[in-house]
Amino acid sequence: MVKKSVTIPVSVVMVFVSLAMLVPFLMMVLTSLKTMDEIFAPHFVWIPDKWQWSNYKEAFSQGDWGRYYFNTTYVTVVTVVLSLLINSFAGYAFAKLNFKGRDLLFFISLVGLMIPPQVTMIPVFIILKHIPLAGGNDWVGHGGLGWIDSYNGLIAPYVAGSFGVFLFRQFFLQIPKELDDAAKIDGMGRVRAFFNIYVPLSKPVFATLIALKAVASWNEYTWPLIITSSEHMKTVQLALTVFRDENQTQWNLMMASTTIMVLPLLVLFVFTQRYFIEGIVSTGVKG
């Protein structure tokens, strides 16, 4: 279709549909500010009579939320830093260095793109249980819990990212060879050239992967559910589901906690939209 200035009905429909997408968020915020009486009123209350900011304080006092936020932040930061470091190294080596078997090794690593993590969660759990000399294990990995119910267990499976390596490699391939030659003439080794030339030139791809990895790590639910068991290892996602398990669900407190968890993410998204969406789009589609 030739782009033309938009016809009025189309734009009205689009605005309506996009507002409809936001209604659940609106419900979340409004409900978080109601009293339970308003929630269970015979006639639906849209706008609370008096905004109950105290719900937020009360929701926070149900459980050790400081601990949950610390756990999640720690796991997210370490996962992002480690994975970016390791994957950018590999992407650089696969793109620019010459060594025997390089392309074969790269193709093998792409298997990681095709295997859904749900398929391997059982063996990964067992492998983590038998990490030698960790969590009471002996040197062959028996007797203890290994990395189960620990930060390492939450982080380790997410460090190697085939997608990250793939994206880094693609980006580094575009950097002209002349820069390598210049670095060589200056007497720079391959590793120093990476830090002094490649990293500063690759800020966009780093930003994209930071945004994607951080959001994925922050939002992770299935793996923490499997690998953690104690209260002090809980992540925010796990903690949020506790509201659901109570007999009489406190909808206002539940929505208050959800709002606190969702808002920073949405704010972050608004500011890093470009990197975020570019990253999503570059997952393989080139129009």
């Binding site: 992770e220 589901t241 659901r244």
Partner: peptide, 12 residues
């Protein structure tokens, strides 16, 4: 947003 948060909103 996380699937957990989405699920909570839709539960309500």
């Amino acid at each position: 947003i996380s699937m957990v948060a989405a699920s909570m909103i839709w539960l309500w």
